[in-house]
Amino acid sequence: MSSLNKIYHFLMKDIQVEARRGFEVLASIGFISAASLILAEVAVKSFTPQFVIPGLWIIVVFIAIFTATTTFVREMDKRTIYGVRLLPVSPSIIFLSKMMFSFILILLQGGVSLFIIAVFSGQLYMLSVNVIFVLIVLALHVSAIASFTSALVMYSEGRAFLIPMLVFILTIPVIPLATTISDPAIPSYMTEYVMFLGQVAVTLIVMTILSEYILKS
């Protein structure tokens, strides 16, 4: 069976399990929607629309923190991690499957947040291709970090503290670039796009390589 096939079956299993725990996703979307509404309302009332874009990316980071608790950490809590680790599958495939799963969750919730902020703050430029492109790339970036963090701390007793700290610290460096290239009020150049994409690509490669070692040991 090809690696892509294995990733597909692993991903479908995760989606099926998550769908059966729909209340968690719905609760998360509810909280994210509330946070987005508050952000939009504050931006309108205080005449500070320039904060909506960085605010959206901070919300995406918080979604990543939530997602980190649903990947490897949940497998460890439920002891299903033993079944995963006994499969004749390379750790990279397991990591990439989990990353794809996180990507879908983050993109779904980030999309809801983007829509609510754009509509309720009246900043409809946020629904442009440029912002949606940044959202997709950023979701990929934070999903790699969330999955890596989840794999790294799943055996740790202090993971409730470690997950938010690590995800926050590892994702923050990319937020200024994401803001620069997605906010029309800030002039941005091709160099910044290249730097943004480069940073995401390096993160993906480094996280995949490190996760191979972590999941093996």
């Binding site: 069976m1 294995k6 079956h9 692993f10 299993k13 099926q16 399990v17 059966r20 725990r21 439920k78 002891r79 299903t80 033993y82 079944g83 499969l87 599958v89």
Partner: peptide, 22 residues
């Protein structure tokens, strides 16, 4: 394993199908 390592949210058949595919 001593513990259950099947996914509690899935049925027995879904679990077995998933592991078979993997």
């Amino acid at each position: 394993m001593h513990e259950n390592i099947l996914y509690e949210e899935l049925t027995v058949e879904e679990n077995l199908n998933y592991y078979a595919k993997m």
